[in-house]
Each structure stands twice: as structure tokens, then as C-alpha cells.
Design a protein around this nucleic acid. Structure first.
Lengths: 306, 306
DNA sequence: GACAATCTGAAAAATTCCTTTCACATTTTG
DNA sequence: CAAAATGTGAAAGGAATTTTTCAGATTGTC
């Protein structure tokens, strides 16, 4: 008996946009999010109840209760897993430092992240970004704007018209006049969701701009307007949530884009890299102000390691 | 919140014979047997539906669905267990996309990171930062400056005189006149190590400023001048290295600092958070069945979006 | 630009599920 | 051994959920 997760991740499965949203929610908190009512799941995914039922049927079930039954039996199986018995013991294990424990938690979160987003999502986003005829804008909240900045740095190597909007101010909204159907807005919004970011993204969406959203499992309100939502399950034992998985996600996206570049663009990236290698420190340190120490490995002209 | 199992095992609870049968079934396969319908559970226990409902009420719930909701959130908590995540990870390991493989690699890198830095290092850095009488400056390279920005955002919540130096330009070096023995400079430098960052940090060190360096395993030349170096082992199969572990490290540092705050500072942070909560979006999470994590805190008087 | 095909949500309809009621059985108490 | 109290299931009633239908919207195609 194949498990539902496998069904959901099946490449051959052709899903409508609304259905994909449901799948994403389902995977983001699998399988718990499918154990409530169909209506509940629909609400979280921002679609109608009917669509949830249709998805269940499409996956080969009699209806939603049928799918749920299967989900339930999986839960049962997993709760009986021998691993779980070990877990209780592990809890009072070695006393780690605060920082170590934190890093552990982050690592686990990234593992969860892997299961939380269908693999073709990155591909889809990569295509949207590279195919956009207009501009690609990036916004983020108090902390996540730094991630927007990083992604913007990467993207501007691959295409032109990348605009890092930075900290939102009243004037920032003027930028919106330039946004329309040909443009793409990449928004980062993790809790506490920020009103200004939400307003900005919503207005862009209203103007026909495709919105790509990076958010956590509780979903920013922007998800309503987003064409694609990339979810990061955050539950780290800290007053502040971790953004490391989000960074990993944008880097994964970059890796995806890199893999799909045509030759011309790849050459562009390579020549950019060559310029950088020239300006960076070299092993023999001829131009290195105050250090004669061993530096990084010298690389000539290739981008392979950077 | 007491878990249902505890309620069921409560000695003070006086149960009728039929009720005991239900409890037995429930505990025998806890909590899965309670996740179906009330009628289903009744059948398994060999009692009527009505008796199941009465038990739920007797236990202090509104009705059966109420009990089930609680059960569901317990399941979710258990399914989030790290060990089970590992298991799930192995499961769908077969066909991975580029993005998935990348995330895997990042996760492993973070695991390595844990061993790469002695546990007291974070503590030491935390003390240096919080004890500095002068200013705390942050610099970084092309991409790592975003990490500097994030850390700067965190730090300015804990102390004053935090200066995010941002992109280095010729003028940036003027800032150095203000740096001396009472100050701290936090530098981020991952390969390709940037000459400007190296020069800046070196000169600050020459002026007596304590330099804290975040770098990769090949060590930026700044390491020579740094008082403390925090290393991140980077070897991800991508033309670009990952910065996610670096983000995790600064967050771990923040966690360390948070743990060592005195009451006055902690109150400062809390009131900052309160202000934010007020300005953040409010969501209605009341009927969210499958999440044990609270969503954003509800605050009155704010509108949800603009 | 028009047509067909598909997608989607709102609302109605059908079904399932939960709860209450009530009559009967069982146990407890005087 | 009554008589009261409690426990129980069947069935009816009510509530909630799932499913279907239908019309509007969108997308893709010629």
C-alpha cells in the first residue's frame, strides 16, 4: 500500500493550481493537516471545500473520508514505530550548550523542509523568475528582507531588472506603479507577519503581478494572493524563529535556476565570476594589505568552486 | 495542557463498565483509535455511540469532536518528533530533485557545524559583545553582508551602539577613526574572501578593536587578527556555497545571548516584541484544528490588512 | 479575437456523524 | 424485597460535513 505522501509527490500527477495549494499544505504539516475536516484543510489552503474533495477523488480515493482513513492508518503505523520508543529516552540525554541545541534544531527543521515542498515547486518558481518579461522585485520584513537581499544578489547574476526593494517606507509604495502583469514580486513574510509587506504584496497582486511567497507553516495572509508559496516549517525552541532554512531554500532555488540556464546565461555568470576572482584575495597575496597568510585555493577562470 | 492519556488514567475518575471498555480500547491503541468517528470507537469497544459521547463529556470536553481535536494535536506533536522526521526523510529519498539534494547537503553541513566550533565559543562571543563599552560594528562581503545585517538587527535589540556598516566603499574606511580598544568588530568573510573586508578588519584590529570573525574552514586571512573565529564547514555541491549554516550560527549566538540576559535587558526586548505584536497582522487561529503551535498572537484594535 | 476546455467557488443536496431523549435493564440502598 | 438510582442502547432529532451541481472565470487554441 503506497502511502499518501508518495501519491502527493508523484511526478506524473498533474494538478491544478488550487490542488497544488492543498498538496502543499498537506505536505507542510503531514499528515496532521489532513486529519481534520475537509473544510478545515480547504480553509488553510485558501480554496473551497469542493476542491479538496476533487483532489481526493483525483488521487484515487472514494472521497475525502476515504483519504483520511488512509492517512489515519499511516499515523497509526508511524506511532507504533520502534523509533518512537527510543525517543523518550533521548530527551534527557547529554546536556548540550544552548548554541549546540539550537543548531541541532535548525538542522532538523531543514530536514523537515525537504518534505514540505513538492520538488517541482522550485522548478516552477525558477521558470517564473527566468521567464518574467518585466522586472523581478523582492520585499521582506524586518529580518527576512536580508534574505530578499541575498536572493536579489544571486538573481541579478542571472537576469536583468532585478529590484531589491529593501525596507518598506511610504514612498516604497510608489514603486507599485511600475508593476503589472509582466512582472514578478518575490515576498518574504514570516511571523510576525508585517502589515506593510502584506499590503505591498497584495497591491502588487491586484495589479496582476505574479507573487511568489516565502513563508512559514502558519502562512502569511499573502498566501491568498500568491501564485506559488514556498513553506518553511519553523519550530525552533527560541523566541525568534530561525531563518536558516529560508536561506537554504533560496539557495536551493538558485541551484535549480543554475541547473536550467542556457549557455548564453551561463557564460554571463562565468564571466562575472572571473571578474570577482580577479578582485578577490589570491593565494600569494600580492595585493593583500596586511596578510601574508595562506588564503583560499587559487582558481583560474572557473566557477566550479565559488 | 494535560494530555488525554493522563485524563484517562486519572485515579479519581469513576467510570461505568461500558466507559471502562472504551478507555481500554483508547489506551490500547492510543491515540489512533480515537481519531476516527465516535461510532467507530463505540463499535470497537462494543458499546453504543451514546456512551462514547457521554465519556467525552465526563472527561470535561464539550463533546466528542472536542476530545478528538485535543487528540489530534497530540498526534501532531508526536509526529513532529525529530526521529520520525529522519525516518520520513529516508523514505522519500529515492528520486530527488536538485533542490532536495541541495537541502540535504545543507542539513548535513549544519550537523558538521555543531562539531566545528567548541561549545564555549558562542558563550565567549556573547560575553564580548555584551560587555563591549564602545560600539559593535558589523561588516561582510558581497553576500555575507546580509548576514551581518541580520545579526545587527538582533543585536540592536539587546544593546545600543550597534552599527551595521553595510557595503564597503572608499568612505566606509573613514568609520575606522571611531574604532579603538573599547569597540568590537564582527566580520563575515567566506570565500571568495574580499579584499575590502580583509583590509577593513585588519585595520580595525591594528587599532586595538576586538575582531570576531565568521568564516569557512579555509579561514579568511582575517583569522590572523581575530580574537575569536567561528568556523563553518562549507562543502555543498553547488557553484555557490551555502550561507544557511552561517545564519544558523548567528542565530545560535543570539540564543546564547538571550539566555544570559539580565532582567532589565530582557524586559527591554520583551517590550520591543510587544510593540511589534501590536503592529503585526492578527490572524484568527481559533478553529485551527491541527496546529499545536500558536499562530501570531492576537491583538485587539488592529486591522488585518490595508 | 472567438470558441472550447478546464478550473473554481458558492450553494444546494445528500450523507454521515453527533447528541439527546426515552424506555428498559441493572445495580444499589433502605 | 421494594424503590430509587444509575447505566445502557435504540432511535429520533439536530448539526456538521461531504458531495454534487451549476454558473462564472480563466486559460489555452485555432
Amino acid at each position: 500500500m503506497t502511502d499518501v505522501r508518495t501519491l502527493l509527490l508523484d511526478q506524473k500527477l498533474v494538478l491544478t493550481p488550487s490542488e497544488e495549494r492543498i498538496v502543499q499544505i498537506l505536505l507542510a504539516d503531514y499528515p496532521a493537516s489532513g486529519l481534520g475536516t475537509a473544510g478545515n484543510l480547504a480553509k488553510k489552503a485558501g480554496v473551497s471545500d469542493a476542491t479538496v474533495v476533487r483532489l481526493a477523488v483525483k488521487l484515487g480515493f472514494e472521497g475525502f473520508p476515504d483519504l483520511q482513513k488512509r492517512l489515519l492508518s499511516e499515523v497509526e503505523a508511524r506511532l507504533h514505530s520502534p523509533l518512537l520508543m527510543m525517543e523518550a529516552k533521548r530527551h534527557d540525554g547529554a546536556v548540550q550548550g544552548i548554541a549546540e541545541a539550537y543548531l541541532h534544531a535548525v538542522s532538523e527543521t531543514i530536514d523537515k523542509t525537504i518534505g514540505a515542498t513538492p520538488s517541482n515547486t522550485y522548478d516552477k518558481v525558477a521558470k517564473i523568475i527566468m521567464a518574467a518579461k518585466g522586472r523581478v522585485g523582492l520585499v521582506g520584513g524586518r529580518f527576512s528582507r536580508h534574505i530578499a537581499g541575498m536572493l536579489s544578489g544571486y538573481l541579478s547574476q542571472f537576469r536583468s531588472n532585478v529590484q531589491d526593494i529593501g525596507t518598506l517606507s511610504a514612498q516604497s509604495f510608489d514603486i507599485l506603479v511600475d508593476y503589472g502583469k509582466r512582472d514578478v514580486l518575490i515576498a518574504f513574510d514570516y511571523r510576525r507577519y508585517q502589515n506593510d509587506v502584506i499590503a505591498f504584496a497584495s497591491q502588487a497582486a491586484d495589479r496582476g503581478t505574479s507573487v511568489i511567497l516565502f513563508t512559514d507553516q502558519w502562512l502569511s495572509p499573502i498566501a491568498e494572493h500568491a501564485e506559488v508559496t514556498i513553506i518553511c516549517p519553523l519550530d525552533v525552541p527560541s523566541p525568534y524563529d530561525t531563518l536558516a532554512p529560508a536561506v537554504a531554500q533560496i539557495e536551493a532555488l538558485v541551484a535549480q535556476i543554475l541547473a536550467s540556464l542556457d549557455d548564453a546565461t551561463r557564460r554571463r555568470v562565468e564571466s562575472l565570476e572571473a571578474v570577482r576572482a580577479y578582485n578577490a584575495v589570491t593565494l600569494d597575496g600580492a595585493d593583500n594589505v596586511s596578510s601574508t597568510q595562506p588564503g583560499p585555493k587559487r582558481t583560474k577562470g572557473t566557477t566550479s568552486d565559488a
